[in-house]
Design a protein around this nucleic acid. Sequence first.
DNA 1: CTGTTAGCGCATTCAC
DNA 2: GTGAATGCGCTAACAG
Lengths: 335, 335
Amino acid sequence: MSPTTIRDVARAANVSIATVSRVLNDSPAVRPATRDKVAAVMADLDYVPNLTARRLSLGRTLTIGIALPFLTLPSFVERLRGVQYVLTESEYDLALFSAETPNRLESCLANLFGRARVDGAIVVSFQLNEEQVNQFLQSDIPVVVIDAWQPEMNRVIVDDVEGGRLAINHLLELGHRRIAFLSDYLENPFNFVSMQYRFDGYRQALEEAGIEFNPEYQQEGELGGREAYQKAVKLLTLPDRPTAIFAASDTHAIGVLKAAHDLGIKVPEDLSVIGYDDIRDAEYLHLTTIRQHLFEMGVEGANMLLRELREPAGDPLEVCLPTQLVVRGTTASPN
Amino acid sequence: MSPTTIRDVARAANVSIATVSRVLNDSPAVRPATRDKVAAVMADLDYVPNLTARRLSLGRTLTIGIALPFLTLPSFVERLRGVQYVLTESEYDLALFSAETPNRLESCLANLFGRARVDGAIVVSFQLNEEQVNQFLQSDIPVVVIDAWQPEMNRVIVDDVEGGRLAINHLLELGHRRIAFLSDYLENPFNFVSMQYRFDGYRQALEEAGIEFNPEYQQEGELGGREAYQKAVKLLTLPDRPTAIFAASDTHAIGVLKAAHDLGIKVPEDLSVIGYDDIRDAEYLHLTTIRQHLFEMGVEGANMLLRELREPAGDPLEVCLPTQLVVRGTTASPN
DNA sequence: CTGTTAGCGCATTCAC
DNA sequence: GTGAATGCGCTAACAG
């Protein structure tokens, strides 16, 4: 048997479907008595309005899409959480588009924008190429980009160059001179650029301190902690090994800590380690790090999108979230 | 200006909308020449079919909903990934319903099932109450439950009792007798039950070995690594401290490792640690653990749901994934 | 092979 | 306040 529709309710309540629709939408233009009767019938019949029909009629999908590279790094998940947190309270559903592999990246974005499936979109950490940007701008659905700097688009960002400088300046103040930088591949198939900015901050801070950049002290690898471990071992077995390592994410930093431990190098006595992100685990690991407000980026992004959906601003909006040094137990002055 | 519709295409191509619809749906019953002409016009007009209309017409939402407790534990995210991975290849969109807090749990499920928004649903790690089960069964949309045992519903599970026994038997074989168990609160607001099963396995294995259960050796805490750290400290500062700890998740185990490290207790010489899950980080941490195939659970669940969507089986299906001891570096015989 | 037509379930004018 | 009628964009018989 087919589900009960607005027509069934109307018939049973002896009113027109228009009236049922009105009580459904809390229209004030309906007599309380009628409203109550209709409501009673709806309850009685277990009536559930058909969202799809409503959507078609409204000309809105009532869903927001989020595209992100993958879900295996906590930083992406945190931002997703922030978005989800806000949207739960809204009228919008959240549709997930996670690429997972570089070769699915294109199709992931194409899916999101291709078929008018969403009223708005949030794009996390993708650096879009010109063609994609144009496509999105033309699709005339509001888009907010999180953690990528697209001047033509609404965005929520952090100043990663500044974050990198904060990290290095902290180490410099402690007296370190041999400071290494460990990150993902700066040129990566997913086109993340935040690591690059952190690296820029690293370079700048060193230069200002009059310290020459030592290419041996820069290591790039695949994403994730395991690779970071191996790269850290490389750094720590250098003849003139660094006294401090700036890991471009906490996940990397954890790999570094593990490597130091396995090599019998004491942190922070023999090695200082500073991470980036301030993920949940950072606190109890006593990891010194640069905090960026991952969850809040999601929140801000979602709110910005909801605002755009309500009344589009003319120019692209930007929210830049602060970055902040959090000193814990993994950094100290070198011996 | 409103987006171009099937009618615009029909007009421009000098065919009926039915024909346009046919080429849209790859109907073989259309002459190649016509098909090409229509396709050309579609491309020319940047025509994008309206998904909502298609959905209404088909009477299907073409979306699948996934409900889970929260996203801050890797094990949930992994299962989500598995689901997302197979759905990407399907015609279905994935709508995310994550409760995040216990008080949102009810509304999360109600949202998912309340308004006919999805054609099918995947429920992760929720132990549903009778009322909810009935609601789902009546909603007549296919549901697959992952990581929770609901006899009336389709499900993907692992044998957590067996997993617990595997862990303990490994420790017993190594010669341990003082074995502690560390987990979330077994009674928790989210109603997870897998930890309880693992605990059952722990109890069983001990009993079979003729070892009496020592309540001091059981610690429960809030979710996550930080709490696990504190609970581990408690265990490790016991006068007659355990020689081995079975942590009911790898996240917990990592907290234990950290605690042992901070207390100067060597692993595995002075303390054996075994985890559960085999999350990505477990490998490079050399963590001995019980592997469960988290990602695969998502894959299996999604495939099961797609199958049900295609042709509903009469009886509830069950897939039970294997659990497996993975010996690495954190377990050894006690001194 | 192709066109005509009738819905899908709801929102929304416009009369009354 | 309420009802009748129209349309949202597409699919699917049914004719031809």
